[in-house]
Amino acid sequence: MSVVIEQPRSPRSRNGANWEKYGWIFMRASGVILIFLVLGHLFVNLYLGEGIKAIDFAFVGGKWSDPFWKVWDLAMLWLAMIHGTNGMRTIVNDYATKETIRKALVTSLWGVCAVLITLGTLVVFTFDPCPAGALPELLPSFCPVNAS
């Protein structure tokens, strides 16, 4: 396959939406938002209190009983997955020399992205901090089984 490089300043040869431009803008816009979301996530989960030692099911249950952290984590999930997948797409486009392999890699990247965004979103929306039958000592203190 030969690579065609257009003359500089030649008019765009394609019609329709300029997806590369929207991707370029998205990387910068989502990146700026992700700085606050990810560094805030690391600060609250790894720096405050007992840090990594304090993270368990009850910790997540406590956070996701608050809509604020649900929205935070959902925004982080969607933006980070799309930002990361688009970054990987850029790298694949740079280094894949065979068009069929490039297409296969880019398709797999977006496939994995869609699966993980769907999985993560379903988990946040269907999460139950007090599942029936679980050991009470593993559940958040506000669960009815721990109420007395």
Binding site: D56, M88, L119, V123, L135
Partner: peptide
């Protein structure tokens, strides 16, 4: 750093999804 963070992100979404399975599995 971007590639490293991307692969951790894939693992991290999966490990967090275990809260939907059971407290024991997640812990």
């Amino acid at each position: 750093t971007g590639v490293a963070i991307f692969f951790f992100l894939l693992v991290h979404v999966l490990d967090t999804a275990l809260v939907r399975l059971s407290p024991e599995a997640y812990n």
